[in-house]
Design a protein around this nucleic acid. Sequence first.
DNA 1: ATGAAAGCGCTAACAA
DNA 2: TTGTTAGCGCTTTCAT
Lengths: 334, 334
Amino acid sequence: MRVRLEDVARAAGVSPKTVSRVLNDEANVRGPTREKVLAAMAAMDYRPHPSARSLAANRSFLVATVYDNPSSNYLTEIQTGVLDACDEHHYSMMVRPLHVESADFVERIDTLISHHRPDGLLLTPPITDHPQLLARLHELDVPYASVSPMNRSGSIGAFIDEPKAAREVVGHLLGLGHRRIAHVTGHPSHGATGWRLTGYREALSAAGIPFDPALVVEGDFSFSAGVAAARQLFSLSDRPTAVFAANDDMAAGVIWAAGEHGLSVPRDVSVVGFDDTPISRQIWPTLTTIRQPSREMGRIAALELLAALRGKGEGRMVQLPYALQVRESTAPVG
Amino acid sequence: MRVRLEDVARAAGVSPKTVSRVLNDEANVRGPTREKVLAAMAAMDYRPHPSARSLAANRSFLVATVYDNPSSNYLTEIQTGVLDACDEHHYSMMVRPLHVESADFVERIDTLISHHRPDGLLLTPPITDHPQLLARLHELDVPYASVSPMNRSGSIGAFIDEPKAAREVVGHLLGLGHRRIAHVTGHPSHGATGWRLTGYREALSAAGIPFDPALVVEGDFSFSAGVAAARQLFSLSDRPTAVFAANDDMAAGVIWAAGEHGLSVPRDVSVVGFDDTPISRQIWPTLTTIRQPSREMGRIAALELLAALRGKGEGRMVQLPYALQVRESTAPVG
DNA sequence: ATGAAAGCGCTAACAA
DNA sequence: TTGTTAGCGCTTTCAT
């Protein structure tokens, strides 16, 4: 038969409530008493029953990670980080793919909450910035943490300085002598899209290069959007010598389209991406990009959520470092 | 306050146990009674409390998907399929990344089981074929389903006819006139590695082409293994005119290495992969490969697991169809 | 600082 | 076919 809390109490010669106190790190247990209980737990290999705990305490010890189909590489990284944090604190995690665009989006999260009763949610872009959802979560008083939300004030989670990172990667191109630098933007619903465009414009401006709208093409973070944007850019009479794509998938698309147009990367055109997903090392030439610590961002965001759940500290919005990864897709302007 | 089962019972004018019966689709409830209860549930928007259910019924309504870091694309697909199935049956799902090679692998699953008490596990390669784990699961009497296990007898889940699929993709190369066809194998711990090699050998044999060990190079499913294998193959005095890589990532590596060697794909060498992950459409040229219905495999395997859990049917090992995807990385031999 | 009693919301076993 | 009675294993009061 399973070892129950009552058995531990008997073995340690204390009441069940005292064992419960030790289990939940509550105050009002003297050192020696705590030791005794801990020893008994270890000796008997005691594992609290999650459902019994949840039922009595009215908490699920469950965090739900909610996403709308970003790249699976990004998602897996975030997920792994969140799991790391949950493991550290004996929480469990569930995942929930959703479509922000669908009419019943908020309703589905409602259902998720009433069905599984997670203690908190972990949101990833673009779900981080869905006004109705956030309003509903406040209404239901369900805590949440966000990874890279557009609006950082009033929420907890993790982020990097995206405009600065974008300035840096464009600065790398400027340093190589490029002056006609194009930009392929991301999907408008993502905060990253605006930040990366801002960084691009700021970098050009700082270098005294006038902004040319013809060099900015709208994309959506997909490989095929990169291909389409590049076809347009490479058809310009005054072709750009470098392209900053708002993520790696689109950068891969740009490189693909360069091949199609008989252009060699980086000899004829330099290309940079953003995110440092595996694809940046799986294409030829390998991609110069910004490394974003996705796994750590998931972990930190989850840790802040858990801190908020336990009332220890209010939960913070933490800035994490990025790093420019110079690889083979960039070279001095020809 | 929340609506409880007792409230529904009162509203419907029946006993709590009857509501419970309706909730769990049990027999011995007359049609009209059932209707009345269902109506009351709907009217009150009743949601059973998962922990209370689990505690009383001694089941968690939880399935754990266990994996060892296959490609995130593959993983996400499987995960989404499993989630689809779990949603259909009001189960929840947790995910657990693990390292098969680590010394405490089985112990970690032990911990997972005693901690979260999943009703069943869903295993993905190569975890599907870890003898000690399977023995332990039988010992603990924890049901599981497998996706593409090496040994199908005695387990439930989903699979495709891998040797046949490999024969077909190699047959495609033979049909283009290729005779010197190389093969880059996968990681030895995966069943797929053996099956794909077998299919390769059978296809050659059927075409009357003698097996040449120099044309088979060991890989491990990673992009860089594809690069390394291709460097070796392209250095042979009698270079192969086509390469069958055991998965898409390695095929991408082969194409990358072809560029490095100044070889044009498919003009100088044709390349085929296996799996049809997104990378097959994100490289240039796009990759001819075998489409494996990963998401559906996850879903079907999970459905069979759930069927086994509910005792309805014993759970089956289901074969799913694959499809050859001809793209731009293959051409008639030059 | 510790313990006793009373549930949390549901289902199993048994009864009717 | 339906209802009654006891818990499931833990945490909450509220005592002491």
